[in-house]
Design a protein around this nucleic acid. Structure first.
Lengths: 142, 142
DNA sequence: TCAAGAATGTAGCACAGGCTACATTTCAGC
DNA sequence: GCTGAAATGTAGCCTGTGCTACATTCTTGA
C-alpha cells in the first residue's frame, strides 16, 4: 500500500514505524562516534556495556549497519564509520543535546532529561526541533 | 543481567526497549476505545485503516493483547476492552492530548503536533509531563 | 433465498533484535 | 613462548510485527 493512499492517521503510524527502524542505527553510530573520539577505538564490548545487551546482539546489529553502509569493520582497524555514518552520528548527537537542553530549560532534572531524550529524540520533526530551539533562546535571553 | 547491575546509560536504553514493547498495546487500546465511543463497535477493518497495516497484522496484535488481558473478543460481542485496557486507553488518550497541546503551545502546527506526539508520547516520564503542563499553564495565563 | 462481496481467520514466510551455548582469536603477564 | 582470560564470532533458538495467499463466515441486496 503506497503511503499516499493511506489515511492521515495511518500515515502517522507508518512514520513512527519507520522511525523505529532507524533508531537502532542512530543510537549505534552515535555511540560509536563517541567512543572513537574518546578512545580512538570502539569495541563490541564497549557497545555491549552502553546498550546493556549481549555481545551477540551487538555483533548482529553491527552486521546490519555494515550492510547498510554506515560502517566498516576489519580485524586490524576495528570499527570505523563511513562518511554517511559519521554524518548520521553528528546529526544524532546534535539533536540529542538539543533535546536534553530543552528539557533542562523546561525544568526537568538532568537524569530524567537524559532518559526521556533517549526515547523521544528519534521522533521529532524539524518543525518541533525549531520550536524547541526558539524556547531555549527565549529562556536564555531572560 | 539484572537492571541494577547495568550502567546508567544501559538502563536508559533498556527502558526505551521496554517502552517500545508497550507502544503497540497503548496505541491499540487507545484506538479501540475511540472507536467504541464513536461507533459502539471496533472492527478489525477499522483498526487496519487506522494503523495502515494488513488485517492479519491487526488480528495478530489483538491476539497478543487478548493474551495480555487488555481486551476480549467474541463473535457476537466483537472487541471489548477489559478494565485494565480501558484504564490504559484513558491514560494514553490523556497523555496524547497533553503532548499535542504542549506542542501547539510551543508553536508547532497542528499536523506536525499530531504526528510528533504519536512518536514521543510513549517515552515521557511523569516529571517531563508535569513540566509540560507547567508550561501550558504559564502560556495560558500570560 | 442465495450469491457476491466484506469481514474475519489461518498458514506460512521474512526480518529485526533479543538470548544461551559453544568456538575461535587476541592479548597480557609470567 | 605459553597459558589463561578477554574479546570476538557462530549456531541456533525465541518473540514481535510485518507480509501474501488461501480459507471461512457474515451480511446484504436482487
Amino acid at each position: 500500500m503506497a503511503d499516499d493512499t493511506l489515511k492521515p492517521v495511518a500515515q502517522r503510524h507508518e512514520r513512527v514505524r519507520r522511525q523505529h527502524n532507524d533508531e537502532l542505527a542512530e543510537d549505534y553510530v552515535e555511540a560509536i562516534h563517541g567512543l572513537l573520539e574518546e578512545n580512538e577505538q570502539a569495541r563490541v564490548t564497549d557497545l555491549q556495556g552502553i546498550f546493556g545487551v549481549s555481545h551477540v546482539s551487538v555483533i548482529r546489529a553491527l552486521d546490519r549497519l555494515e550492510a547498510r553502509g554506515l560502517l566498516e569493520r576489519s580485524r586490524k582497524e576495528g570499527i570505523r564509520l563511513s562518511a554517511e555514518g559519521q554524518q548520521m552520528a553528528q546529526e544524532s548527537a546534535r539533536r540529542h543535546e538539543l533535546v536534553v537542553k530543552f528539557l533542562r530549560v523546561l525544568g526537568v532534572s538532568n537524569t530524567r532529561a537524559e532518559a526521556d531524550a533517549e526515547g523521544i529524540e528519534h521522533h521529532l520533526s524539524e518543525e518541533t526541533l525549531r520550536a524547541m530551539r526558539r524556547l531555549i533562546r527565549q529562556r536564555e535571553r531572560g
